[in-house]
């Protein structure tokens, strides 16, 4: 059923701290490792060790240079995956009902057995979070590791999404963003967590924590070397350079 649930019991999602992400891609590789061997068929790759590698990944790590109005710039590593929006069109545009949002926890999933691979859901996502699997012929997306978080066959500390478990700096947190007393909700309130493309209106569940202001400092910049002034000495060097280059 591709109509959205009126409300979900929980709003499970991720909080990503852009202040401490170091852009190591561990979350992306660990996501690929877990999801290529679990739920649904493998995440196929094409020419993975060749000159033109491509493949389906559920998590992508960008690096941006963000410059403030005052001219202070900072490199920000920026993981991007499905935000498990509350009102996303990726679910409602699906003609078969394969794309759906779970009422119990708000996770947005694709049923790999009924997806016809029309790709319309990826067109409806402004975040570019869905990637088509050419081998499997169905759309792939972040499952919030639905096969880990409720999995009683793995140790309790592993019952979080693979990306969260892998992050070496603790830049990723998992929890119920619908519960104001959860750790994730508290950190969002404390740090002014924000939505990506809030103006778009899909109401993302995942939140991002901004880089801390006091960690944005202008690095000392060395003085520029003086421009050539056309003195006799410079002309002599220019002549010598020319003579020796012959």
């Amino acid at each position: 059923m591709t109509c959205l649930p009126e409300k979900t019991d929980k709003k499970l999602g991720l909080v990503i701290d852009l202040d401490i992400c170091v852009g190591c891609h561990a979350c992306a590789t660990s996501c690929k490792e877990w999801n290529t061997s679990g739920y649904s068929a493998p995440l196929s790759d094409h020419d993975p060790y060749g000159a033109d590698p491509s493949g389906a990944w559920l998590n992508r790590i960008h690096s941006f240079e963000a410059t403030t109005a005052e001219g202070v710039s900072k490199t920000v590593h920026f993981p991007r995956s499905c935000l498990h929006c509350e009102e996303p069109d990726c679910v409602t545009v699906c003609p078969t009902g394969a794309s759906y949002k779970r009422e119990e926890d708000g996770i947005v999933l694709v049923n790999p057995d009924t997806c016809i691979g029309c790709k319309l859901c990826s067109w409806a996502c402004p975040y570019g979070a869905r990637e088509y699997d050419y081998d499997d012929g169905v759309m792939k997306k972040c499952t919030l590791c639905v096969d880990r978080i409720y999995n009683e066959n793995i140790p309790e500390e592993d019952r979080v999404p693979a990306c969260v478990r892998a992050c070496p700096t603790g830049a990723r947190a998992f929890g119920d963003l619908g519960d104001p007393d959860s750790d994730v909700s508290k950190s969002v309130a404390e740090r002014d967590g924000f939505n990506l493309l809030d103006e778009f209106g899909y109401k993302p569940v995942n939140k991002y924590l901004p880089p801390r202001i006091n960690s944005v400092q202008a690095a000392p910049v060395a003085e520029e070397p003086a421009a050539p002034d056309g003195s006799r000495l410079e002309k002599l060097f220019a002549w010598a350079d020319k003579a020796l280059s012959r």
Partner: peptide, 17 residues
């Protein structure tokens, strides 16, 4: 990206792939 703030700018530095 939510970056750059008022009057700031954002540009891609390293691509994800």
């Amino acid at each position: 990206t939510g970056l750059g703030g008022q009057g700031g700018s954002v540009r891609p530095l390293d691509p994800p792939h």
